[in-house]
Simulated scan of single mutants.
Amino acid sequence: MMGKDYYQILGITKSSNEDEIKKAYKKMALKYHPDKNKSPGAEEKFKEIAEAYDVLGDPKKREVFDKYGEEGLKGGMPGGQANGPMPGGGGRAGTGNTYHYTFHGDPHQTFKMFFGDDDPFRSFFGGHQGFGGLGGHEHMEVDDDPFGHFGRGGGMNMMGGRQPQRSKRQDPAIVKELQTPMEEILNGATRKLKITRKVMNSDGRSVRTEDKILTVEIKKGWKAGTKITFPKEGDQSPNSVPADVVFIIKDKPHPLFKREGSDIRYKATLPLRDALCGGTINIPTLDGRQIPLNLSEVVKPQTVRRIQGEGLPHPKQPSKRGDLIIEFDIKFPSNISPSVRSKLKELIPTS
């Protein structure tokens, strides 16, 4: 390949993907920006970096460059023209089928379009923390060091001393309880939750208020206390990393059942006669069915019965369910007649 090697200029390989190209440009552009790098040749290097990104950041231009190199990209391919029309992507058609690309010549324009800000360096050399409005590229890796030529530990202040490099701190998590009906724990559910937050404008300084819908997939059997975290969905600010938004599952009280892990408990009201003499009562379930329960023995106040598999799913094995536990609220009569009392004394054993 004749002419400039744009891959070499950005320090990447021909197999690099789009994200790797963006990352390489960000690192190199910050390193060689003439406002911060006063070494000889920095300005020319800054321009080369912008041109390399202008080509490799555009799939059509990159395709031409990969096939024909810089000379082919700019209309100087061996033989004078390509075999058929060439993809353009910002170049211009010349005579015949020859492809012409010309860099617009303003590396600062490329820099501004990439970062969405005239001065992203204010975060490092001014009072702001972090990158602020870097147009979606605010997450710098820990190992990245675009200011390596200043030396580690920060930049240089006006007197030649070292200025500590500040990093953004994340705002404390925003925690909200999510009241969850027992039926959603039984069947699973999708919840759409609207939050209102502050969002940075493209200038990297001012903010606007907007609503956003967060989708929570409630899984079968989730326990109370389960946390669902949406990273960095809190208010945006030039001085901090947005907070995580955290929802915590909380059981919504049910009119019939009380949750006990994967089991549910139901209190059945039972007349004294049925408690002593037996009978059949209908027990409700979470899905609306009625299960007949035959009482053939004396039901004491502390008696409990279990109906297996009618509770809630196990969180780690949703195909298995806990039990429906039945306790009894035995209703005694408020008064009885003397004749009935006499008969009961005869019929009920003393021990």
Rank of each mutant, 00 (worst) to 15 (best):
I9F: 01
S15N: 07
E18K: 10
I21N: 02
K27R: 13
M28K: 03
M28N: 01
A29L: 04
P34C: 06
N37F: 09
K38V: 14
K38G: 12
P40S: 10
P40C: 10
E48Q: 12
A50P: 01
A52C: 04
D54S: 12
D54Q: 05
D58F: 03
D58T: 11
R62G: 00
K67F: 09
G69T: 00
E70Q: 10
E70W: 03
L73S: 00
M77W: 01
G79N: 01
G80P: 02
A82T: 15
N83Y: 11
N83E: 15
P85D: 11
A93P: 03
T102E: 08
T102Q: 10
H108Y: 14
Q109E: 15
K112Y: 12
F114D: 02
F114W: 05
F114P: 02
D117T: 08
D117K: 00
F121V: 06
F121K: 05
R122Q: 13
G126E: 08
F131C: 11
F131H: 00
G136D: 09
H137E: 09
E141F: 04
G155H: 06
A173C: 07
I174V: 14
I185G: 03
L186W: 04
G188D: 02
T190C: 07
R191E: 09
I195F: 09
R197L: 09
K198G: 06
S202D: 13
G204K: 06
R208L: 08
T209S: 06
E210R: 04
K212D: 11
I213V: 15
L214S: 01
T215D: 05
V216A: 08
E217W: 05
K220D: 06
W222R: 00
A224P: 01
A224V: 07
T229P: 02
Q236W: 02
Q236P: 03
P238M: 06
N239E: 13
V246M: 03
I249C: 07
K250I: 11
K250H: 08
D251V: 08
P255G: 11
K258Y: 04
S262M: 13
K267M: 15
L272E: 13
L272R: 10
L272H: 12
R273E: 15
G278H: 08
N282C: 10
N282G: 13
P284F: 01
L286I: 11
P292W: 04
P292M: 07
N294R: 14
E297P: 04
V298T: 14
K300A: 15
V304M: 14
P313H: 00
S319P: 05
I326T: 05
E327S: 15
N335P: 07
S342D: 13
L344E: 09
K345R: 14
L347E: 11
P349G: 07
T350S: 14
S351E: 14
